[in-house]
Design a protein around this nucleic acid. Structure first.
Lengths: 337, 337
DNA sequence: CTGAAAGCGCTAACAT
DNA sequence: ATGTTAGCGCTTTCAG
């Protein structure tokens, strides 16, 4: 017994002894039960402070069947995840919300994970719930996870089910407004660089693009997939140019892709916005870094992250939050259109 | 008992029953012990597959006193952390190494918040070890964590102790080589924009700057702190210009700061490299994005992350890795000098 | 308001 | 090679 204390970790038993009460009472104090006399409370608190007691998480979790941890699961490859400011903002928001609670966050970058560590981690009871951001339609394990613990999705799930909880931005509306701005600015030869059309965000923004065009009686000049990355955006732009297509305006479904596209345009001797106007999406940090600064549709990613965490926390607390939250976007006017 | 199975989680007991063996044998199979007969192994594996058994992490951790999790602790404000490609590369490296092992990573963005969730998380036995990246001299909780579990630092710790384990790049040497390159290119009016001088990386790169100057018999023109951020770099540049200082070359201790500085230089009508040559540090993605593309000292951040994780894993496995690993940098010639 | 007792699901000696 | 036996440190009925 004293052998165990070698490692320095005081147990609830030792605290109980020091305070002259039973383990149960210490447990009540630790867990904030009101049914404790002031004297006992006082004694226990002193003992805890003296012994520098921190409850063992595994033991607590085993007994209570709760972990007070949530998984943040990102089915992307590592580079994409860490390179994309969109994720940065989402994670910040989640972290900000969780930080006010007594939950901790476990980050999983799940795609490069053939052994499916993520799924078995979740199924091992290591977390009480999960937040899943940006899953493609090809991600099979998502369902297995959703069958194991409460899940909140970032963005509309690929195959939406009635019981799904998610927080999304109004991508259709945002894209439509962005393109409408282009049209109202006098452009009519409008092409788009999309995200992957396996992702709802990619699909929805393309849909908004088309709605705006249709509402104005215009037809789409070109649609290229840029995969939501700077390099993909550059390639999409190259393909478009190679096909001899010369838009007077471009709706690019993410700022990162817009950055890539602008580089290619630049190299081709085309000026922004005089030759080609561009409106991006996200308002990520690069939007104000590139030259000319990018006019873009701002996406409230931080708020989205916060909200996702809050919805999950509410569910875990037994409350009944709304299944779907849609956040609005906002056009930020800069110099590229 | 059958009430428990409602949640669907099979226990080791159920697997044992299904396989017709004892719990111990199942445990041996799960943990890869060789002392199991082929028949038993076969039976247990089948039972595991049939019951979809995943060991409960809390129970396993409680009994074995190991968690197979490590904390990645980043004592930075969240925006800095996610905005900086340097961290992105480090974390990718860590993730890459951990992913090959059976350890999982718990990400902690430790605020200086006195509530100190991170510390108590670590002290609760939730992780077997920790990786701590980029701590300032002001971060108090670092020591408490290092006293609780094995720690590996990213970068030389502020107050280095003999027993510390860390992985760093050779900042002094790298900075010295960068500045030497400037000198050999014929520049002599050389100023620097440093990182925070509360951080070893900031201190060491300044030291290298001075060593190169001294070796060439030159004196330093100006030293401004740019705080390792783009905005800070811009401000540092503004201050320098406002003081009437006109370097012919600049050593900027991070590419992000160099980007900021270049914007200011540009706005002031100064051309790079004809008016002011610049060498950066990091070789972060922006280095090849800015115009002109930045000559910079490449830092092997991904490798650094990988190595940090490996050192920690080795320690946890009872091996005795070297306390200190220093990785070399490499000058990448582009267009800014 | 408090304590006793019974596990939570698993590992790890120790026998056999 | 396998089973038996104790716990790991905590929560949680259940009595009192």
């Amino acid at each position: 017994m004293s052998l165990e204390t070698v490692r320095g970790a005081a147990t609830i038993e030792e605290v109980a002894a020091a305070a002259g009460v039973s383990r149960s009472t210490v447990s009540r104090v630790v867990n904030g039960s009101t049914a404790v006399s002031p004297e006992a409370l006082e004694a226990v608190q002193r003992a805890i402070a003296e012994l520098n007691y921190v409850p063992n998480r595994a033991a607590r979790s085993l007994a209570s069947r709760q972990t007070h941890a949530v998984a943040l699961i990102v089915p992307e490859d590592t580079n994409r995840f860490f390179g994309d400011p969109f994720f940065a903002a989402i994670v910040s928001g989640i972290h900000s919300c969780l930080n006010k609670s007594d939950y901790v966050m476990n980050l999983f970058i799940a795609s490069d994970d053939p052994g499916d560590k993520t799924t078995s981690y979740v199924r091992s009871g290591a977390v009480d719930g999960a937040i899943i951001v940006s899953h493609h339609s090809t991600d099979l394990f998502v369902e297995r996870i959703a069958n194991t613990v409460p899940v909140v999705y970032g963005g509309r799930p690929v195959r939406e089910r009635e019981k799904d909880y998610y927080v999304d931005v109004d991508n259709v509306r945002g894209a439509k407004d962005a393109v409408t701005h282009l049209i109202e600015s006098g452009y009519s030869q409008i092409a788009t660089i999309t995200g992957p059309l396996t992702m709802p965000a990619g699909i929805d923004r393309l849909e908004g693009f088309r709605q705006a065009l249709e509402a104005a009686g215009l037809s789409e000049l070109a649609v290229e997939d840029g995969g939501f990355s700077a390099e993909g955006g550059a390639e999409a732009m190259r393909r478009m140019l190679a096909r001899g297509i010369r838009p007077d305006a471009l709706f690019v479904a993410s700022d990162l892709m817009a950055q890539g596209a602008m580089g290619v345009l630049n190299a081709a001797g085309l000026r922004v916005p005089s030759d080609v106007a561009i409106v991006g999406f996200d308002d990520s940090p690069v939007a104000s870094t590139v030259s000319p600064r990018l006019t873009t549709m701002r996406q409230p990613s931080f708020a989205q992250g916060e909200r996702m965490a809050q919805v999950l926390l509410d569910r875990l607390a037994g409350k009944h939050p709304r299944h779907v939250t849609i956040l609005e976007t906002e056009l930020v006017l800069r110099d590229s259109v």
